[in-house]
Design a binder for these strands. Sequence first.
DNA 1: TCTGGGGTCCTAGGACCC
DNA 2: TCTGGGGTCCTAGGACCC
Length: 426
Amino acid sequence: MARPFFAMVDCNNFYVSCERVFAPCLEGRPVVVLSNNDGCVIARSAEAKALGIGMGEPEFRRRSFFVRHGVRVFSSNYALYGDMSARVQRVLSRFTPEVEPYSIDECFLLLPERDPEALVAVAREIRRTVVRWTGIPVCVGLARTKTLAKVANRLAKQRPESGGVWLFDGRAGIEAELARFDVGEVWGIGRRSAARLQRAGVLSALDLTRRPRDWVRRKLTVCGLRTMLELRSIPAIPLELAPPPARSVTCSRSFGVRMTALPALEEALSAYVQRAAEKLRSRRLAAGAVQVFVTTARHAPERQYANSGTLPLAAPSAYTPELTDRAGTILRAIFRPGYRYQKIGVLLLDLVPADRRQLTFAEWEDEEVAARHGALMRALDAVNGRFGRGSLRFAGSGTGPKPWHMRQRHLSPRFTTAWDQLPRVR
DNA sequence: TCTGGGGTCCTAGGACCC
DNA sequence: TCTGGGGTCCTAGGACCC
């Protein structure tokens, strides 16, 4: 029986590559992209890695280093990265209908069985096409399982002689590589599990494949067992063509400055609930419960406080005023004066399809109310879709300056999606 | 002064029921 | 002295991913 191959296509230094597409002068220079709020480094060009800049390093500690070494610094620009990601996916879907977008910069593809030379040729064609049509360089790992394809992708990136493509086929070759592959680098083995495995004498990915199933199951639960089977070339994680429906929607941010007063927190919370509710409606979902959390600054040498609360709704809803009302109630219950808050967030939980949601008694009794709520939200989303996010918003999120807004000191333009900023021609 | 945000899944343990 | 056992549901916390 023919056994297909998984291809893991991963964009190289994705966020940096996106910035470079629109600023080719950055080619060959050290470039980093920062997390939201310009907090820490989340993407590095090869030149930046060579300078010793680590993943997750706080920006403030490296600021003078960046200046000294001419490192170009960017704030995260998710409007740009999301659009570039969609372009890459569209190119990949020309090679096979079986594409699973796994993250903003990675896709799994399923390729039918064929001889190794032909597979590698397809992978090289994928690389050539993606970079020519989108400007984004990618590497391809090929193997019988997703987990091995991830390992192969890593090798494709690390070994210049691979030409950006690595194929895992044949037991001896796979085992030789797994013997040199740190178990903590395997997809699905995080820091905690890696430490426990190392204490038990499991250092390489190959070591893990040599342990009995029961032992792995006990140490790492069923997820770890699947990982181990996949390293043995036994498929245990299938390709997911249709993404499962979302189970929750979150919106949270760190503040640009610490906040102490309840009204300011309420303002920020209102803004995040509006954003979360927008996401909810764009996916045609309604929420059955609302959760709010607050935290103080983790790393600061001051009194810490973190708390959260959850409230169910009378019936699933995607109506912003109702969600805001519930969220505000939770915030007032968990707020404690005297702390310098760093972050607030809202989670919408117990999601159900909006068209099949249970009506509240009031809505059921008065269809007009439900219709008015729905029409208002559609109008709101339509205006913001046309004129840009936040063009029309609730007064609860504040009408004055917003000191809590996150910092984005190094933001590039939304080159591909900023239609709302262009002059309109009628 | 300054350290991201958004997800998923699994498990243990408690509450509750019969 | 001695006080069942098993099922289900829910939740919090942990672990993982990018």
